[in-house]
Design a protein around this nucleic acid. Structure first.
Lengths: 177, 177
DNA sequence: CCATGTTACTTGATGCTTCAACCCACAGCC
DNA sequence: GGCTGTGGGTTGAAGCATCAAGTAACATGG
């Protein structure tokens, strides 16, 4: 039923790896969302949005740039920022530099929210992921995810835009001074 | 601001690994969903549901058992199976063995749907994951995901129920005769 | 054989994500 | 200065997930 009779399916090792990966992709986000929802009333995505703003000098970013850093569509971000704005954690203002960009700004209340929320979230990430891995495991994870990311987002891994991982490479902890 | 001053945050290596993992968890499901949606009008989750049924002898499973194999809540599964039933790919019938279990059965049309869909999906999984990894990478991935799964689903990794990975260990390709 | 509890499953409401359509600002061209 | 195109952002509707509540079948103790 197609021109793919050469490398069909997956061998046993791949199959095993894939099933586990699929299970992790199902269960891990659910677990992290559960913690954030319970303790902070936030989605993983909305927390990430706040956290990324909190790490940015000036605590402001154009919507497009923010969308790129949190790997989302502009539409999704727009909806989410609208909700965050209603909560008083973010404001939106037209950019002085260009009439068509909107910059999102983290308010003081938003900063405070991130400060409150970050420790619990980091603890959960540690508990679910890093407590299960030794140093070699952490290295493996970094290596494998980097390889996969390269295929998922060929531009993202190597891009030269002003907000890429190259420009301000993963400098500090989520939302810490 | 809390009693967690002992193992706070994440160190640099962990931070790097976590950011990449988070990005993969965002982008990879989106990419796989996109392929399935485009080529088959299915969600990753609804495809998985059909595929798991297709691999079961008799092509039937109680809802609870099916929910366990696809790592979902019964509620979610119930909604999804309702949609699959409307499409004619699955039917639901009360179990003869117990008045309170419902068994889901994959119809011939459903089986055909899986046969049509599986190759393209497998190809995408291969393209996005395994083409990026050598044998050692695959081994790392299996190992790391197994460790994480152990924390996420302590019962799931070791359970002895009739549908666990131990009982019919990843025998064949997704939905192939 | 009725009361209580538990298991298996369904339903409805609510909220988030996605998709397509849209508006506005600016650039290039004539 | 109008015409067209593209990039940045927003909006509304539709689909899917999640949560809380509900029903029905069985078990257990009185």
């Amino acid at each position: 039923m197609g021109p793919m009779d050469e490398t069909p399916w997956l061998d046993d090792a791949e199959q095993r790896a894939w099933r586990r990966t699929a299970a992790v992709m199902t269960l891990l986000p659910a677990a992290l969302d559960a913690q954030l929802q319970r303790d902070a009333g936030l989605t993983q995505f909305s927390y990430l949005t706040l956290a990324m703003l909190s790490e940015t000098p000036g605590r402001t970013l154009p919507m497009s740039a923010l969308a790129a850093t949190v790997n989302s569509s502009l539409s999704r971000l727009s909806h989410v920022v609208a909700r965050l704005e209603q909560q008083g954690w973010v404001t939106r203002e037209p950019s002085p530099e260009s009439g068509r960009v909107t910059v999102a700004r983290l308010t003081d209340a938003g900063m405070e929210k991130v400060r409150e929320t970050a420790p619990g979230h980091a603890a959960e990430v540690r508990r679910l992921i890093f407590d299960a891995l030794d140093d070699e495991g952490v290295a493996s994870l970094a290596c494998v995810t980097a390889a996969i990311l390269g295929r998922l987002d060929p531009a993202g891994g190597m891009r030269a835009n002003p907000l890429s991982r190259e420009a301000h490479p993963v400098d500090d902890r989520p939302a810490t001074g």
